[in-house]
Amino acid sequence: MSDTVIRIAPRTHDIGGGLVVRRALPHLLARSVGPFVFFDEFGPVQVPPGRGTDVRPHPHIGLATITYLLAGRMVHRDSLGTVQEIRPGDVNLMSAGRGIVHSERGTDAAHADGQFLHGLQTWVALPQDQEDGEPWFRHYAGAALPRIARPGVAIHLLIGSAYGTDSPVQPPSPTVYALLDAAAGTAHAIETDYAERALYVVSGEIEIGGEIIARNELAVLHDGADRFVARTDSRLALIGGAPLDGPRHLWWNFVASTRERIEAAKDAWREQRFPSVPGETEFIPLPER
């Protein structure tokens, strides 16, 4: 660990069907970065025909999910009645509020023929005054999100205001989220308008303040971490935002400012009192621990 960055190596899980998930947040070294309390990378993987990567209906409270695909296609369904195909470059933003249920499945074509799948799944904790709010869902096509060119770097601004540009995505709290493709040898100034920031190396390798950040590592940035150098062609995810308005508890798919909210959500899912997803008959049971 340096004065400039905290390096986090994600925990790796094989969830079946050859799909490997790398979880960088939460971590003992960083429970959150801005409002981000959860950061997963899934794939890249060639998924064979079948339904191996389908995620059955499951509940959420107190968070907003952000789904971003680098390759492949998936279909989002939720208890609001939403049915939305997700394509590479799109942003799916779903606010759970006091409770929502959703599934994420492969398309019919993916089930029949298989597909190459790669993506990022992140959660941001809702501000405390939104935890009991109505759930909502918003989809943004990738073509509608700003593309910014800087010397040696192509930026896809998903959420927030950065590099003098505003994304149309409206997050629950001040948030920045962008994908950066940097050519080898490029030195790039990192957006500094947010109190907490991190860079995740999807591919390649970068250097920040003398620290080498390798593929699949998360670099949580301290004050003074204002630039990186791409040692190879690299793809990065920049995340961050304003600090949380208080501590959060995480258990399974639930995020809350109090343990009582978590326990109430566990009881509600166990007793199947959450709203259902139209057209879905399966669900993921509450874990035993």
Rank of each mutant, 00 (worst) to 15 (best):
V176Y: 05
I206K: 14
F228V: 06
G240E: 00
R197M: 10
P243W: 02
V220G: 01
L250F: 12
H249Y: 15
S167F: 06
S161A: 13
E217W: 03
L250S: 14
I206D: 14
A198W: 04
G240V: 06
R227C: 11
G224F: 05
G240R: 02
G246C: 12
P151W: 12
L199M: 07
P168Q: 10
Y200I: 02
T165M: 03
R235V: 03
G152H: 09
V169D: 01
L179I: 15
G152Q: 06
L199I: 08
H249C: 14
L236Q: 07
G204M: 11
L180E: 07
Y200C: 01
P168H: 08
I206E: 15
I239P: 01
D226F: 00
Y194W: 09
V201W: 12
A214T: 12
A219H: 04
R248V: 11
P247I: 12
D233F: 03
A219S: 04
F228Q: 04
L250E: 10
P171N: 04
P171C: 02
A178Q: 10
L221T: 00
L180D: 07
S161M: 00
A182M: 11
T175N: 04
A225I: 06
G209E: 09
A154H: 11
T232L: 14
V153I: 13
L180A: 09
V220C: 06
L199H: 01
P168I: 07
